[in-house]
């Protein structure tokens, strides 16, 4: 369970989040949708204790992330990149992360197998392709077998087979009762897997509900999204 309550954030002189509130519930895939720069990543980074908000609370299972004991056993997070230093092998990276949360070394090889990187365990992270980096990032997130998954643009850089794999993996995770929160700017992708959808634009939540509610009278989630975020065709690009 993820509860974000009236989170506001200012960077320099610009306010980038305005009273952002939403929930992500167990057993459901919650899609966090918004154009680039809308505040998705900032919200997730505040949720994970990486950035600080000026006001509001962001809780995971009722506690702020920094108060979680051995947090990887509760939350798995996938942000930009793999998080592995370029000079480290995939296995060495996973082993130090495991050690920091009191998890056994054997978990490293287990999660490498889950994400299909067993054959690359001894390869340095700096030599990974974008898709492999995402998989290594996901493997890191899965080390503690967490009940909550927080993923920032998880399908970025994946090939079609990887995208399908990720989709099935996230659906299965939710079916097993996990809370899955993922951000994306890809409407079509999100419509395929999300049970609930939150739309953010210019730092404000514009709508929050299940997929059918958010789509409403629009033909697709994409139409609804474009109407809600008032992006004109041919506008920003």
């Amino acid at each position: 369970m993820i509860t974000i309550d009236r989170v506001s954030k200012t960077k320099g002189r610009t306010q980038i989040l305005y009273d952002v509130s939403f929930e992500a519930r167990p057993g459901r895939v919650t899609g966090f949708l918004g154009p680039n720069g809308a505040g998705k990543t900032s919200t997730l980074r505040i949720l994970l204790g990486l950035d600080r908000s000026q006001s509001g609370t962001a809780l995971i299972c009722g506690r702020p992330y920094p108060k979680l004991d051995r947090p990887l056993t509760t939350v798995g997070a996938l942000l930009d990149g793999s998080g592995a230093h370029r000079a480290r092998t995939a296995r060495a990276h996973l082993r130090w992360v495991a050690a920091s949360n009191g998890l056994p070394d054997s978990r490293a090889d287990e999660v490498l197998e889950v994400v299909g990187l067993t054959g690359h365990a001894r390869k340095r992270a700096g030599r990974f392709s974008l898709g492999m980096s995402r998989r290594l990032g996901l493997a890191t997130a899965l080390l503690g077998d967490p009940e909550v998954l927080v993923l920032d643009e998880p399908v970025n850089g994946l090939d079609p087979a990887g995208i399908r794999w990720m989709r099935e993996f996230l659906r299965d995770s939710a079916a097993q009762g996990r809370t899955v929160l993922l951000s994306s700017h890809l409407m079509g992708e999100l419509a395929e897997i999300a049970d609930d959808v939150i739309v953010i634009d210019k730092g404000r939540i514009v709508i929050h509900g299940d997929l059918a509610e958010v789509t409403g009278d629009h033909r697709t989630l994409e139409d609804a999204f474009l109407a809600l975020t008032a992006t004109e065709a041919g506008g920003p690009w």
Partner: peptide, 22 residues
């Protein structure tokens, strides 16, 4: 240090602080 050219803003620190937020 940046973890790679694909994600210039990504650093090991993210992994470190999600593992050890205190």
């Amino acid at each position: 240090t940046s973890t790679g050219k694909d994600a210039p803003g990504a650093r090991q620190l993210t992994a470190t602080l999600t593992a050890v937020p205190d």
